[in-house]
């Protein structure tokens, strides 16, 4: 049975499919061959694309790392509960003990007015001025650490609850600067995306211009192909693949640039983290990142060549 099937000549459909695949394969390989024949020019173009792709990729990676680090810090959020100055020592000690039992709270540390004054003396170097005071103007402060795993909202809710305590005067969420940092990071991320979009346009234009020149330099050949009955698709195809190759090469170069930069930064970053007592893991592009980078290169390369092909091939008509 199988033998009979094998001996039968391939069907029309099969032949058409083979022709289609071989036409595309030929264009794909041919386009790579053309890049290879002018290695310096091709490499220059690819390098421009590589830098243009590496910049936003590198920035986004940097921001992702930054966010990773600050996410660790969010758990460290602390609340400072300033008590009213007229609260008696046994009352604030009792309050500290109660809070210590609260399920939303990991730890509550008491700073008595005396301790606070001591600290102020030690740091400010204004002993003389402080000596003029006849009574301690400082309130007792409770440093409250939210329970592990509390997100910013939970911390804010806790702050509100503590503020409602009759003895509490003011609750300060030490997270404010963290939130500010987060919004700065977010701003930087948006800025990077805007720059990425602009660089993406630059990539499209660079590929478009390169393909335009390739079309110009092969004008004679394209005219002859048209004379011999080449379809628009046949003529377009090698240039589209050429654009894809440029994009892919640019993506690979961008990958190398980002990974090299990462390699150079990993040492100092780890040292810095160690000085903060944390084992910082510098996060690389990862499989997803690599796939995105290469895909972005190919898509932009294709877009650039489409632009050039659409604009310039129609102008080529046999004389």
């Amino acid at each position: 049975m199988a033998e009979v099937a094998a001996r039968r000549p391939p069907s029309r459909l099969r032949r058409a499919a083979n022709a289609y695949v071989s036409a595309h394969g030929r264009a794909l390989v041919g386009a790579l061959g053309r890049l290879y024949r002018t290695p310096l020019a091709s490499l220059m173009t690819a390098a421009v694309l590589g830098v243009a792709l590496a910049l936003p990729a590198g920035f986004l990676l940097l921001l992702a790392n930054l966010q990773g680090v600050t996410a660790g810090w969010e758990a460290d959020a602390r609340l400072s509960v300033f008590l009213k100055t007229d609260v008696a020592p046994d009352r604030y000690r009792a309050l500290a003990a109660t809070l210590e039992q609260d399920p939303d709270i990991a730890a509550a540390t008491l700073i008595t007015p005396e301790q606070a004054l001591e600290e102020l003396r030690a740091v400010s170097g204004m002993q003389d001025a402080l000596a003029l005071l006849d009574s301690n103007p400082l309130p007792a402060v409770l440093l409250v650490q939210p329970a592990a795993g509390a997100d910013p909202e939970a911390a804010a809710a806790l702050a509100e609850r503590l503020e409602a305590l009759p003895d509490a005067d003011l609750v300060q969420l030490d997270q404010a600067w963290l939130q500010r940092l987060a919004s700065v990071v977010e701003l930087a991320r948006r800025g990077t995306l805007v720059i990425a979009a602009m660089l993406g346009i630059a990539v499209i234009l660079v590929v478009g211009n390169t393909i335009r020149m390739a079309i110009e330099s092969r004008r004679e050949e394209l005219v002859i192909i048209k004379l011999l009955g080449g379809t628009d698709a046949f003529i377009r195809r090698p240039f589209l693949y050429e654009g894809c190759w440029y994009g892919l090469l640019g993506g690979v170069l961008a990958l190398l640039l980002v990974e090299t930069a990462l390699l150079l930064l990993r040492g100092p970053a780890t040292a810095l983290a160690a000085s903060y007592g944390s084992a910082l893991l510098v996060q690389g592009l990862g499989m997803d990142g690599v796939a995105w980078l290469l895909a972005a290169g190919v898509v932009l390369g294709l877009a650039g060549s489409r632009l050039a092909v659409g604009r310039h091939l129609r102008a080529i008509e046999p004389r």
Partner: peptide, 11 residues
């Protein structure tokens, strides 16, 4: 070979 390549004839 060019016209045959254009016409998609097998190698």
């Amino acid at each position: 070979a060019l016209p045959l390549v254009i016409a998609g004839v097998s190698p």
